[in-house]
Design a protein around this nucleic acid. Structure first.
Lengths: 201, 201
DNA sequence: TGACAAACTGATCAATGTTCAGTAAATTAT
DNA sequence: ATAATTTACTGAACATTGATCAGTTTGTCA
């Protein structure tokens, strides 16, 4: 009696096709480029069909937002191999910024979606929170190693995350365009290094 | 021959009326609540009239964005009275965050508008850059006082600004909602304090 | 094969930003 | 004062949007 399973699989595949099409449209031209009719054309179904698999456009965009966090998490395990905690945190920051700059539209979406935690409060299983917990773990290792002054882990993690997110956001939104282009990368690198300055420096 | 002047004044007043109506709509319900027809209804003109004073909706939103920076700058002079540079920087940060949280939609707009610097590159006279220069001045005073480790002023200013902007953005977008509500303010305060930690701490 | 259910269609709706021929008001010239 | 001209404004119209739903096709099972 695998019929129900097959149907679920089919529905899942359809959802995936829709999301794939939506993602392609989104990364190419942002929110306004994602149109129910354009998605429908891409998957070769009629617009009405999409509403059998998603509540509305917002629902689709929310799923894309989650996919963004999944992608961000995808390479987290590579960081684990770095032994030195401060170096690991530093590399994590560089990776974070690189991800944001390589996927600017996606990164925007990841932090533009207000409804992300709306449904029944924050879910520890959710990708956004898992990403933060992984980051906080690295911060904890630094604190344990006495690299920063004594502080709450969460407080320190939030401060450093905020710096990274702030830099990513300012860069993507072109708010640092007053700096000479060629020194931009260097300035950003050093700015994050300043936030990571060790106790006594 | 004050006729031309009067016409300019009238056109200016009309622009102001339109922007006022647009701002009211925006702070109440965000971007999608700002509608050319709704603006027109508020100012009691027909929709077409708006296009005699603004290029399009984007143009209107851009002006609102500028108004946001003007408001942010409005109380900057009060900070100047604080003698101690670190205390001044700290108070500036608190004021910045308070502004962002009291005007969340406006703050979003201030940093959501990509076109802000599009026209002929960054303009030193523009409010956004003036705001940064004011902030950087406070940072310079701290560096001169030896409070932070030697560094480029711009680099340090960007690091601290990014932290503030990151905190504001994360708060507004609800990304810190996994923290207990009652400790949120405290955590944010301490997170910024961490970024401001003095040399040797 | 026939009855039922599930999947899909596409015309349709209200609302959006924007345009522009036409009207009304204000100004200048006669 | 009246006519001519410029300026200000209107609102119907257009293309496109997200969303709906009666009707059709496809698939499943007795």
């Amino acid at each position: 009696m695998g019929i129900k399973e097959r149907k679920k699989r089919n529905a899942g595949k359809m959802r995936a096709r829709i999301l794939k099409a939506a993602m392609q449209l989104y990364v190419k031209g942002g929110y306004e480029n994602v149109t129910m009719r354009r998605i429908a054309a891409k998957i070769e179904y009629s617009p009405g069909t999409i509403y059998l698999y998603f509540q509305n456009k917002k629902d689709i965009m929310l799923q894309l937002c989650y996919q963004g966090f999944e992608r961000l998490l995808a390479h987290q395990d590579k960081l684990e191999q770095i032994a030195d905690p401060l170096e690991r945190l530093s590399a994590g920051g560089r990776y974070y910024l690189a991800f944001a700059l390589e996927n600017p539209e996606l990164y925007e979406l990841m932090f533009a979606t207000k409804e992300i935690f709306k449904e029944s409060g924050p879910d520890e299983e959710a990708a956004p929170l898992r990403a933060f917990r992984g980051f906080a773990k690295n911060v904890k290792d630094c604190l344990d190693a006495g690299i920063f002054s004594a502080n709450e882990v969460e407080t320190t993690a939030i401060a450093l995350w905020a710096t990274l997110h702030g830099l990513a956001s300012l860069l993507i939104k072109g708010r640092l365009r007053f700096l000479p282009e060629e020194s931009l990368a260097e300035v950003v690198e050093q700015a994050y290094a300043f936030s990571l300055r060790k106790r006594g420096e």
